[in-house]
Design a protein around this nucleic acid. Structure first.
Length: 563
RNA sequence: GUCACAGUGGCUCAGUUGGAUAGAGCAACGGUCUUCUAAACCGUAGGUCGUGAGUUCAAAUCUCACCUGUGACACCA
């Protein structure tokens, strides 16, 4: 039942002269504190047409409207405040959640439409850093939110697996590397070769020529170059998979930059055919002045293609392959101009689906206020952070709950959960300075706080020999339960907002609010007491676990049953 | 210089479409485990919402200007 509609129905007869149903829909709000009521109608807008003080209007309305559907309706200053019938609301809400279980909040907004998501996208032969974490976990959460709302997400890991750096890597490997070392620890050693190359080429610039030559060989399909590239790529991917497994993230495609090599000639032909390509300073560009943008560089003066060309090919490929209804790119905010250009070029090419492309930017992670840079050695390795978090979680378990079974599994769920949740709880556009203590904190507004709340609730359910039934009364009318019930009823709307804004933090913040409210209830109310309300209280506890676990799962965070 | 993003208690951040006394968490101080997991709960203290003007019955929220920080600005991705 839509309780807001009840409020509108009650007001409509008396105010229809001045405000339409739709206007009422927009103007009715939720008071800040539930002491004031569950819905409120501010009377300011009527003051002009009625030539009366808002306070007086509120009093008049309360006297006129039909209050039977509500517990009470009162005028507080210029507001008409509606208090819902707690019994009906409680029964409806709990029944809906218990029946739907993990499907509570599902809604078919997408009708199965395909939505490719470009996410994570690390570079081969380089470690996964905290920067990649953001793209990975934001993309993963958005994918889950899309599934929940009836879309069909396709998670694409657009690997950085092509480019002149592979020429350098081959040169470095042949000069200083060994097969055994790469097999032993691929990322570390490949990165070492790469770093050494950059050190040595200062004194020996001829190394760069060698690297160029090797990359040319790779492009021309030379067997040795291709074999090495293939090997570096697969060894790197094996390493990446370890981290993705820790994070619980899976991909539908690993088609990276190399995949589009044979698809770029067509893009250039298309641009030429549409007369969009212009020569400028030796390079081929698409002019975007009418969009207020810098020109898009399509081809370098030496004939090589660029990031833009590859992304155009990828965008077109994805449209042809997936017939997407939206195409998302979870990529840092520093690249926002690139995506504006990408969309503009596609529009110039006559593709009206360019508007379905959405760049989902996120803020920068810095360390001591400075941008992280692989080349300058300022890297925070994600694997290390995750391992630190797991280790600390394990120590916490040893201290707080030493008899817990499956300690390693729980430590992993809590540690990794803390890292993921920390990344998702704030507005994704916020920059943040990396601070390990902050990331792996288990107290306060953190992932483990939500997990812990759920674990306590689960513990109660385990201890109760009685299980709740849907047939008995589910009415809870006490104030302590009321705030929880209202939050539970909000969940579907929260998911909608997260979807609309592509903002996982909306879910994370909601889970914190619900957990906080439940902890308050837990601290003040005995649940396992054999009285007539026991069934209703257990239903509430069960509903809280359903929603908390679902919210955490949308974020890609596990819900240990004990911790 | 141009564009983008941000500026809310000591620190990190909330604040749906403008609305009722600006909310949390950390840190500080004090209290609560013989009873469902104290990774919790309760309380105290702490704020010119960057600055100035404007729109409005009403502005942290909208508009403009300015200040500060970060990032991007043609042959990297």
């Amino acid at each position: 039942m839509d309780f807001k509609q009840q409020v509108i129905a009650a007001l409509e007869p008396t105010v229809s002269e001045f405000l339409s149903k739709e206007a009422l829909m927009n103007v009715i709000e939720v008071p800040k504190s539930s002491d004031l009521g569950d819905y409120a109608f501010p009377t300011f807008q009527l003051a002009k047409s009625l030539h009366k003080a808002p306070q007086q209007i509120a009093l008049d309305l309360v006297a006129k409207i039909d209050q039977t559907a509500f517990e009470k309706v009162v005028a507080t200053g210029p507001y008409v405040n509606f208090f819902l019938n707690k019994q009906t609301f409680s029964e409806e809400t709990l029944k809906t959640i218990l029946k739907a279980d993990q499907n509570y909040g599902d809604q078919d907004l997408g009708h199965g439409g395909n939505v490719p998501i470009d996410m994570s996208s690390p570079n081969i032969a380089k470690p996964i850093s905290m920067g990649h974490l953001r793209s990975t976990v934001i993309g993963n959460a958005i994918a889950k939110i899309l599934t929940k709302t009836g879309y069909h997400p396709i998670k694409i890991n657009h690997l950085g697996d092509w480019g002149t750096q592979f020429g350098k890597l081959i040169v470095a490997y042949k000069k200083w590397g060994s097969e055994a070392a790469v097999r032993e620890d691929p990322i570390t050693n490949l990165l070492n070769y790469y770093v050494r190359f950059h050190k040595e080429d200062v004194a020996h610039p001829e190394l760069d020529d060698e690297a160029r030559a090797w990359f040319k060989k790779l492009e021309d399909g030379d067997q040795e170059a291709t074999d090495l590239w293939q090997w570096f790529r697969s060894e790197s991917l094996k390493e990446f998979q370890k981290i993705y497994q820790m994070l619980g993230v899976e991909f539908d495609s690993f088609n990276g930059e190399a995949f589009y090599n044979d698809k770029m000639a067509e893009v250039i032909d298309l641009l030429k055919a549409k007369n969009l390509l212009h020569e400028s300073q030796g390079a081929e560009i698409v002019d975007l002045e009418k969009y207020g943008l810098n020109p898009a560089l399509i081809q370098k003066s030496d004939g090589a293609t660029l990031y833009m060309t590859r992304d155009l090919a990828a965008a077109i490929y994805r449209k042809r392959t997936y017939h997407f209804v939206q195409s998302l790119y979870v990529v840092g905010n520093e690249q926002s101009e690139h995506f504006q250009q990408l969309k503009a070029v596609l529009k110039e090419m006559g593709y009206n689906w360019a508007d379905q492309i959405v760049h989902i930017p996120f803020g920068l992670i810095t360390e001591n206020g400075k941008k992280l840079s692989t080349r300058q050695g300022r890297v925070i390795l994600l694997e290390e952070v995750l391992n630190d978090a797991i280790r600390l979680a394990k120590a916490q378990i040893k201290e707080k709950n030493p008899d817990l079974p499956n300690q390693d599994k729980v430590a992993k769920e809590v540690g990794v959960g803390a890292v993921i949740f920390h990344d998702l709880k704030n507005d994704r556009m916020d920059n943040f300075d990396f601070n390990l203590e902050e990331v792996v904190r288990f107290e306060g507004e953190t992932g483990p706080y939500v997990q812990y709340t759920n674990a306590r609730a689960q513990s109660i359910l385990r201890k109760s020999s009685l299980s709740y039934t849907l047939d008995d009364a589910l009415a809870l009318t006490d104030d302590a339960a009321w705030d929880i019930l209202k939050l539970l009823a909000d969940y579907p709307e929260v998911i909608q907002r997260a979807l609309k804004l592509y903002e996982p933090s909306v879910i994370a913040k909601y889970s914190l609010r619900l957990a906080k409210q439940f902890n308050k209830y837990y601290a003040h109310t005995r649940i396992l007491v054999d009285d007539p309300q026991l069934n209703a209280r257990l239903s509430l506890v069960k509903s809280v676990t359903i929603v908390l676990e679902n919210a955490l799962s949308l974020l890609g965070v596990a819900s240990p049953q004990e911790m």
